[in-house]
Amino acid sequence: MNIETQDINGITVLPLEGRLDGNNASIAEQAFLQQVAEGKQQFIFDFSGLQYISSAGLRVILVAAKKLRASKGRMICASLGEQVLDVFEMSGFTNILEMAATREEALDKFGAGV
């Protein structure tokens, strides 16, 4: 997984692609932590290109959400595909995380719509 973050009106968009599993979850975690180290606190995790997530992938999302909650940052999970949404729902994550149907909706929630 190769992650290229994007800055849109001060919001950091982190796109996830392919599979987020036990083999590559650490790549996503490092990409996120790198951005936090650079002072970023407002994130959109864009799942539109992600076909598959496992509990190892969910761990990264949970770590990110907890870290941002503690530092008064914010993250929105946007554009979840079918399998990813089912896994979020099975886990109860849709109740504890901020969700958006699309990247645009997430930007609107941040008040950073274009």
């Binding site: 496992s54 509990s55 190892a56 969910l58 761990r59 949970l62 959400a65 907890k66 909650r69 896994v87 099975m90 886990s91 109860g92 504890i96 995380l97």
Partner: peptide, 23 residues
Amino acid sequence: DPDRSLELEDRDIGGLGIFFVKQ
């Protein structure tokens, strides 16, 4: 099975994987 009613701060991933298998 994991307690899925916990708040974000108290959640962890332990037990979720096997719970998925059962589901």
